[in-house]
């Protein structure tokens, strides 16, 4: 069964029909957002049942939108959180990635600005490495990007996509060694991106670039599949602990490509989470490493591959 990442967008009225349907089909709802009269369900649905969900949602005014980044957590790395970089372009980029289903976290570096003085702290490095990929939002000058990129990428192990003012070819030429993705034309600006040409088109390219990078990651994971799908693990943990019901976080259990971020204290719950049963003979601790996250006191689960555990649930 291949699960496809999609977003269901429809009215709040009777949307529980869709929720139940996705559950019955063996799909997972990664995130549910209610915005005024509308409900957005970011879900993984079996490929062959997409038409059924569309048909069921049609009388309720619902539509199913392809969202390639559902089930991924992406770090948007901004040189700082000052007015120079926020809300444009960092927020525009973060919002655009969320529209296609990604869970984005803005990582504002404490010393990411400047040319000579730019650097990355150990805490920032570790937080970025907890994500599926990192989008580095750099500035307008190729001289500065070339000079500072070495300091900013030091120790980063996840795929990096660099955006900046110079065009894509220039970014490719100046960044050595190469990174996983480049998007030109997306440097520092002073206004919200609205124009299709020269602004939104670059955001669309960024989506394509991030999707491409994550597809490669997914393919490499598929060669040695995970012991349990992250979405299934999310549903097992959430059902046992009832985290979503008791939390105000938008995504209390965040799904990543090969792991989960569970937003409850590590100290109190790590052992319990490890002991939750996935089925009669397999516990969460058997198929995943339970690690303390550098983000607050959350729990980070890294799902082990089949070759490591010999278990597939």
């Amino acid at each position: 069964m291949t699960l496809v990442p999609v977003t269901y967008k429809g009215g709040v009225y009777r949307h529980d029909i869709i929720v139940d349907l996705i559950d019955d089909l063996g799909g997972y709802i990664i995130q549910k957002q209610v915005v005024a009269q509308d409900v957005f369900l970011q879900s993984l649905i079996p490929k062959e049942d997409i038409e059924l969900v569309k048909a069921t949602g049609r009388p309720l005014g619902g539509e199913v939108i392809e969202s390639p980044l559902v089930g991924t957590e992406i770090a948007i790395v901004s040189p700082s959180l000052d007015i120079h970089h926020l809300p444009h372009t960092s927020c525009d980029v973060a919002e655009y990635l969320r529209r296609v289903g990604a869970k984005t976290n803005m990582v504002g570096l404490s010393r990411g600005f400047g040319k000579r003085i730019a650097n990355l702290s150990i805490e920032e490095r570790d937080i970025i490495n907890e994500h599926d990929c990192a989008v580095f939002m750099l500035g307008n000058f190729e001289t500065c990007i070339e000079y500072k990129m070495h300091s900013l990428r030091r120790g980063i192990t996840v795929p990096i996509i660099v955006t900046g003012g110079p065009d894509r070819e220039t970014l490719k030429r100046i960044i050595e060694p190469s990174v996983d993705g480049y998007v030109g034309g997306l440097g520092r600006i002073g206004h919200r991106m609205k124009k299709q040409e020269g602004e939104i088109e670059y955001l669309d390219r960024l989506i394509d670039e991030v999707s491409g990078v994550l597809d490669i990651r997914r393919e490499s994971i598929a060669k040695d599949p995970l012991s349990v799908s992250p979405a299934r693990l999310m549903s097992v943990i959430d059902e046992d602990l009832g985290i979503t019901k008791g939390s105000t976080h938008p995504t209390p259990v965040t799904v990543q490509i090969a792991g989960l971020r569970v937003k409850i204290p590590y100290g109190e719950y790590a052992d319990y989470v490890a002991s939750i049963k996935i089925d009669d003979s397999v516990k969460v601790g058997d198929v995943a490493e339970i690690l303390p996250s550098r983000m607050r006191d959350y729990i980070l689960l890294r799902i082990k591959p089949f070759s490591d555990t010999g278990i597939m649930v």
Binding site: N140, F141, P166, I189
Partner: peptide, 17 residues
């Protein structure tokens, strides 16, 4: 500025601010 793309970007930023 000796970099043309950066020069144009900063012209826009200054105008916006």
């Amino acid at each position: 500025c000796r970099e043309e793309s950066g020069r144009l970007a900063y012209k826009d930023i200054a105008a916006d601010v």
